[in-house]
């Protein structure tokens, strides 16, 4: 199975927890005409990590790096959910049954329905197991 086409490049950005940091990141991306497709902020005491799926991850990476940000690529996968009650349960159950541990996750509800974005440790295994369980994975080309 070609698992590579399901691996999506998320950009992860280290940010101090103070006013204006998100604006600085968003402004830089806007300037480069980079569209943010999904995003979340994880916060801890004093700092946060901004995670985003964008249409041009390389361009976003280079731009933010040039501004001095701590930025890294992270491989994530995206699973299609039904946009209705129980939709998340269906997907979560598949992952649980398959023994896949979720490091973190966030979701969005867009044109092509609801999508769960997952950061897991063993990406390839996860892709195979999710495919075998009958769930739909979104291909990288949907995002970039």
């Amino acid at each position: 199975m070609d698992t590579k086409k399901y691996v999506i490049r998320q950009i992860s950005i280290f940010s101090e927890n103070r006013p204006g940091r998100l604006a600085a990141i968003a402004h830089a991306l806007g300037e480069e005409k980079i569209n943010i497709l999904a995003f979340s902020i994880a916060e801890a005491n004093g700092f946060g990590v901004v995670r985003a799926l964008v249409d041009h991850p390389e361009k976003a990476h280079d731009k933010l790096l040039s501004l001095g940000f701590n930025i890294a690529f992270t491989d994530v996968i995206a699973v299609h959910m039904k946009d209705q009650p129980g939709g998340l349960y269906e997907v979560a159950k598949i992952l649980g049954d398959a023994g896949i541990n979720i490091e973190y996750s966030y979701a969005y509800s867009g044109k092509e329905g609801a999508v769960l974005i997952l950061r897991v440790d063993l990406v390839e295994d996860a892709i195979k197991k999710i495919k075998n369980s009958g769930a739909t994975l979104l291909e990288r080309s949907v995002f970039h």
Partner: peptide, 15 residues
Amino acid sequence: ELNKESFSDKINDIM
């Protein structure tokens, strides 16, 4: 300052 090479997207790693 957190070094660029040590940055991880996982909060736990940074903690």
